[in-house]
Nucleic acid binder design. Sequence first.
DNA 1: TCTGGGGTCCTAGGACCC
DNA 2: TCTGGGGTCCTAGGACCC
Length: 338
Amino acid sequence: MEHARRLVPGAVVVASDHRAYREMSERVFDVLGVFTPTVEPISVDEAFVDIAGLWRHYEHPQAVGAAMRDAIRLATSLPASVGIATSKLLAKMASRDAKPDGLRIVAAGTELAYLHPKPVRSLWGVGEATYARLEELGIATVGDIAAYPRETLVRRLGEAVGRTLWELAHADDQRRVADSAAAARSISVEETYETDLVDLAAMERELLVCADRLAGRLRRGGVVAHTVSLKARYPDFTTVTRSETRRAPMVTSNELFTVACRLLRRTEAQSRGVRLLGIGGEGLVSAAEPRQLDLDGDLWEQIDDAIARIRDRFGADAVGRARLVEPGSQGPDQGSSR
DNA sequence: TCTGGGGTCCTAGGACCC
DNA sequence: TCTGGGGTCCTAGGACCC
C-alpha cells in the first residue's frame, strides 16, 4: 500500500472488512446447504458441491447451477460463478472459466477434449516453480503432460507432484466432495512491520502481541497445540522457521510467548533484524481431550479466559498487557497503534 | 517489481527404536 | 558386539493455493 500510495497520491483507499466478508460467506454457504448437505468449503468464497443427488429435481445440471446462482444473488446481491463437471479438478477449472459471473459445464465424455489444449499453468497444483520445470521439459499444455512418460515425469518432478499431475492430465481425479471443511491442522498469525525491528526488546513485544492473538484463535477454535513454530523474515526477505514440539500441548498466551522467545534466540534475528514475525500452532488436538495441567498453566488459562470474555463484552482494546504500553503514555489507547 | 496473511502438503535428513 | 533394514517422529524449508 505504501508503494501504491506513492504512485497514486490521490487514490481512495478502502479498508478491508473481514467481518463483513465472513458474514456474506456464511449466507452463501447457507444457500448452498439448502440444495444439498454435501458442501465442502475451499475458502471463504469457494466451495465444492456434490449435485449428483439432485438429478430428480432438475432437468439438467445447467438448471442446478443457474438456480444456485439465482439463490445466491437473491440472498446476498453477489454475483457467483459456477463450474460443473465430473470431477473436482474439472469443476474447479470450469468455474475459473465462468468468472466473473457465469456458468460453465464440462459435459461427461468431453473431459479430455476440454483439458488437453489448456496451458499447464491452469492445472491446480502447477505454480511458478513447477511451471518453470515443465517449460524446461518442453511441456506447454495439459495434453503434453498426458503424452509424457509417467515415470520420467515422476523422476523430474518428484513422486507426489509427478504422479498427481500425470493423473490429472488424464482426467483421473477420484477425489470425493467432503460434506464439511477438514479440521484445521495448524493456526498461525504473523505481521510484517513497516520498519524492520532491530532490537530484541521490540521483537519480544511483537511476539507477545502475536502470542495473544494466537492464544485467542486457538481458544475460539477449541484446540491446543503440540508444536509451536516461529517464523522470522530478515530484511533481505529470506525467511526461516523454528519449531518446538512438546508432549504436553500448549494453549496459553504465556506458554506460546515463552516458547516463541526461546525459538527467536535460535535464529539470526538479533544480528540481522526482522521485517516479519509470526507464531503458529501445529499438531492441534481438541482442547476437550484430557490433559495434564500444571498449576501455573491452569492459572494462565484462567487469565486468558477472563481476558477473552472482557474483550467479547467490551471490545478488543478493553484490556491489554502492561508490557505493551509505550513508556510514558497513559494507557493502552494512547500507547498502542493497533 | 521488492513482495500480506493464512493455510496445506511434500521432501529430506537426523534421531531413535526394534 | 556389530550391521542392516525398516518404521516413526521431529525439524526446516519449499511449493502451492486463496
